[in-house]
Design a protein around this nucleic acid. Sequence first.
DNA 1: AATAGCTTCGTTGCATGTAATCTTGGGGTG
DNA 2: CACCCCAAGATTACATGCAACGAAGCTATT
Lengths: 216, 216
Amino acid sequence: MSAISTDRIADSIYDRLREEIFAGDLAPGARLSVPALAERLAVSRSPVREAVFRLVQDRLASEEPRRGAVVAKIGARELAAIYDVREVLEGLAARLAVENSGRRLVTALHDVLAEHERAVRDGDVAAVTEADMRFHALIRQASGNPEVGRLLDAVQTQVRLAMRTTRVTAGPRQAIDDHRAILTAIESGDPAAAELAARAHIFRLRSALLRQAEGE
Amino acid sequence: MSAISTDRIADSIYDRLREEIFAGDLAPGARLSVPALAERLAVSRSPVREAVFRLVQDRLASEEPRRGAVVAKIGARELAAIYDVREVLEGLAARLAVENSGRRLVTALHDVLAEHERAVRDGDVAAVTEADMRFHALIRQASGNPEVGRLLDAVQTQVRLAMRTTRVTAGPRQAIDDHRAILTAIESGDPAAAELAARAHIFRLRSALLRQAEGE
DNA sequence: AATAGCTTCGTTGCATGTAATCTTGGGGTG
DNA sequence: CACCCCAAGATTACATGCAACGAAGCTATT
């Protein structure tokens, strides 16, 4: 019953570096020198090497020839490509959720949507983000397809990284309207409609993103 | 201009283990002991450890608690989930290929299809597989979206692993008919039609797969 | 003969040594 | 003043040592 043993140094270093990247403490372009990190974190090079390796595989860092890994930059172009993928994956998740799931999902989504609306009214930015992510997470868990969940996690990792450079805000009202449309489609029990609604939502996010990148 | 330096021991071990898994020399369930492999391959444990780690991340192996990694088994259920993902990704690739690509793709696909038909007539199983894979690879390269390519590579890795246990053959005539339908849709320049045709193709493969798994 | 305890073996994960290779900065030269 | 070459530094990748931890098998006891 115990959780995964997190007493692995390599894991905790991976988590820590990840958070430092998302928090901006490690800006895109910053070098991830294994010896330097090992000294800063007061551990040997082995677990650091493993952690950096995982960051590269997650595309949070990229290998530069003989200069070590650096925190990855991600431009609007790459992000748009990722959103193409996200569009079809979120659509798939919504379709599968309708096919596999029941009333429980609908009520949970209603709750999150209500919280989302409250957060927007109150101007609580953190809560808005939280509710937004929860909405998608619920659907993806309900899909019953772990592969979709894993891939969407990877997509979200890239999106979070992109927020370090690109400012990507879809109008908050638009997001709520989209979510409500998705929920309505799920409630109606129509898998194809749910897929379309989810895809339309992500497609609009992608458009907003590109428009914003254009205006720079 | 030189290719990626493959003179890394860890890389060559990774490639070798991968091939041994696909060839069946390492059957699903076989233990991947790092010390044992290091001795067999006459290298130290470090590069072997890295290679095994990558296999686990690719889901070609799975970690068993305190007994090391073992070659992964993949059942019909997991494979069906993977095909759900593959369906939407191949659909996306086909749509993007139509939007981004031109006549070059169409002629290349015609060539591969002709070769595919010849191979089926001659009963050349290896050539059939080759042509089939080439058809999909062409579309995915033409999509211009590297993310789709990477994810479909990962999907294909799982499919190849699954072939070690599950026998997955869609009738060869069906595959050719499907491919011709996809090509027709691409030729017509209709992105939505191409997406639907590609999705239908994978969906049929998935159905054939599940039917075959059912009958056991 | 069955079972409980113990010993041995194998495994992982981390630390550290070392050679090869590339980058980079400085000093000397045309 | 610009440029080139060389040397020093840093990095990776691999080898190897070592302790902790379970698992599996053997032995002794009931």
